[in-house]
Amino acid sequence: MASIAYLQQVASQVRRDIIRQVAAVASGHPGGSLGCTDFLVALYFEIMQNNPSFYMEGKGEDLFFLSNGHISPAWYSVLARRGYFEVSELATFRKLNSRLQGHPATHEGLPGIRVASGSLGQGISVAIGAALAKKMDNDAHFIYCLTGDGELQEGQIWEAVMFAAHNKVDNLIVTVDWNGQQIDGSNDKVLSLGDLPLKWKSFGWEVLILENGNDIQSIIDALHQAKLLSGKGKPVVILMKTEMGFGVDFMMGTHKWHGSAPNAEQTANALSQLEETLGDYPL
């Protein structure tokens, strides 16, 4: 079991990787990536039984699906730092001939990615399919899935949510990145999600609310609790409150950095706030 201090060091480096990936190509989505960093680090470095010697079927291990594919810089960094591929490859993010596409894809064979995502609302469905395959194979491992909150405006999400409850897909743990923001503003301004905990509960899910999704210990505790609730006939959702842009002061508290890259000065400012703990990859 990794120490919290070590996981925080990993998270700091992942945040540097996010800023440096996005800044290098002046394109990408830093806000949600920074907000979900602690979750992805906790999941990949502490919670999941996963195999960085990647193979697609993933029998005998836990699997993760990223539905909100635009936070790819965070996922790529976590996968690289976890050993799925060379950290140096992060320098190719969003460039021609790269395996690190703007949104995650399997097409170029990047280890760790099992399905493309980016067009929103599809990840929970795919995760359900993978969860059903595990049940058919009597494989007791878990399927994890992360979605955005704005993404919950897609109708397919609720098809999947209804299905998972009806079919007792109880080896599935979904986490919602509940930062309250989307491209055009706050969720409440664009299209209110209403009483989100009650919605999931009324669909038949076990609902956990994680008040601080940027605190690694709290995330680990919530994921352990989710695992304890699993296997009892209900899928589990963690509604995880995060701060978009967490770790970089001028990116927090606004939706402005959802899909915008920092300029050179902003990049220097951001990096000055994030300790280099595991070594930057060469640009």
Binding site: M56, E57, G58, K59, L63, F65, R114, V115, G121, Q122, G123, I124, S125, V126, A127, I128, G129, A130, A131, L132, A133, K134, M136, D137, G155, Q156, E159, A160, M162, F163, H166, N167
Partner: peptide, 23 residues
């Protein structure tokens, strides 16, 4: 057999996930 109900988008996603698992 997986009955998905009147929810074809979800069906396509579930199919993709089953295929990942070797089905």
């Amino acid at each position: 057999f997986v009955q998905v109900g009147i929810a074809e988008a979800n069906m396509m996603g579930i199919a993709a996930g089953l295929a990942i698992g070797g089905k």
